[in-house]
């Protein structure tokens, strides 16, 4: 009877599974004290990727660049096993310094504490700057202002601005932080990326952090604004209202064209106002931009020729094509040459 043999097979499997199950039981109870160590960092995340594999983790901002590079690379070299994920710069470094990943995407330079972590685990790396992310600050097309200073933005978006529903509400604070205090009387609605976004973090770090530190404030923005992970939603909301306020990655603002007004930015009140363009972002004269990096594990590169090929490919296709495709600003020629020589001189 066929049915009988089917069930006999099932029971054989049940036996195995039950044995596994009870194993799991004992090791779990043994390990409960170690759980705190492994739970958050997924330090035990071994992975079985063998020699020729390439695993990239890290910043979700840089992820689209690496995804494009990996995609194009795989078209040529389908035999190489490649995977890209984007849990965040911090999580990425945690894995990278534990030796679990080959390349770590980062939307900021590695922190000292993270570098120490790497050193403690004997992970040596090379830092490669691959592109620049500019942030455009914007409003509806009919907004009369043309230039905003860091002080203006602080008085509109810092935690101290919580509750401001009119641009002019911010004037008192604006004067305190070194602005001119002449923001217009118009309703203020803010749409911007939320805390889960790299653009949010960069905005705080570049525009707000120094003043927040000075004034003993928590390093964050005001909470009461509409956040969206979708850049098109942000652009839509901002463009529909001439006294709105928001910020997005530069490429999205450029694409939106005349439907929004992109502000020129001056770091100091009364300083030179600079509009974001690929040129001003690339030469760092536009103040709200950040560098994007990849970090490559040196030992893994030495042991894995596929990884070397991959990074070589990144230095060419990645810097020249993928960065722009992913809507970031490519490096200028000098910076590009610098990155390439950093990789070759590893």
């Amino acid at each position: 009877m066929k049915l009988r043999s089917f069930f006999t097979l099932l029971f054989a499997l049940a036996l195995v599974a039950a044995a596994c199950g009870s194993d799991a039981d004992t090791s779990a109870s043994d390990g409960s004290t170690d759980e705190s160590a492994s739970a958050d960092g997924s330090a035990a995340d071994g992975g079985s990727s063998g020699g020729g594999d390439i695993f990239i983790s890290g910043s979700s901002t840089v992820e689209p660049i690496s995804v494009r590079v990996a995609d194009a690379f795989t078209a040529d070299r389908p035999e190489v096993n490649t995977a890209v994920e984007g849990p965040g710069t911090g999580d990425g470094f945690q894995k990278f310094c534990a030796g679990e990943t080959d390349i770590s995407d980062a939307s900021r330079a590695i922190k000292e504490s993270e570098a120490e972590d790497c050193a403690a685990n004997g992970v040596e790396f090379v830092e490669l700057k691959v592109g620049i992310d500019g942030i455009a600050v914007m409003s509806g097309p009919g907004n009369p202002l043309s230039c905003l200073s860091f002080a203006d933005m602080y008085s509109l978006t810092s935690p101290e601005a919580e509750g401001f529903e009119n641009w002019s509400d911010a004037n008192e604070l604006n004067l305190e932080v070194g602005g001119s205090g002449d923001l217009p009387d118009a309703p203020l609605t803010i749409t911007a990326p939320g805390e889960e976004s790299g653009t949010f973090a960069s905005f705080i770090e570049i525009v707000l952090e120094d003043t927040l530190d000075e004034r003993g404030q928590e390093i964050t923005t005001r909470f009461d604004y509409q956040s969206s992970p979708n850049d098109n939603v942000i652009i839509n909301n901002v463009s529909s209202d001439d006294s709105s306020f928001g910020w997005v990655g530069y490429a999205f603002a450029e694409e939106a064209g005349d439907s929004i007004k992109v502000f020129e930015i001056s770091e100091e009140e009364g300083g030179e106002c600079i509009a974001p363009t690929p040129a001003t972002i690339a030469d760092n004269s536009y103040p709200i931009s950040r560098d994007l990096f990849i970090y490559v594990n040196k030992a893994k590169a030495a042991a894995n020729p596929d990884l070397v090929d991959f990074v070589d490919f990144y230095m060419d296709y990645g810097l020249k094509t993928a960065v722009a495709d992913a809507k970031y600003v490519p490096l200028d020629d000098a910076a590009m040459a610098e990155t390439v020589s950093a990789w070759e001189g590893r």
């Binding site: 965040g88 999580d91 805390e195 889960e196 976004s197 973090a201 770090e205 390093i219 964050t220």
Partner: peptide, 12 residues
Amino acid sequence: SVAAGSDEVVGS
């Protein structure tokens, strides 16, 4: 959404 991951942010 906590699990779905994101970029690292201040005060995580």
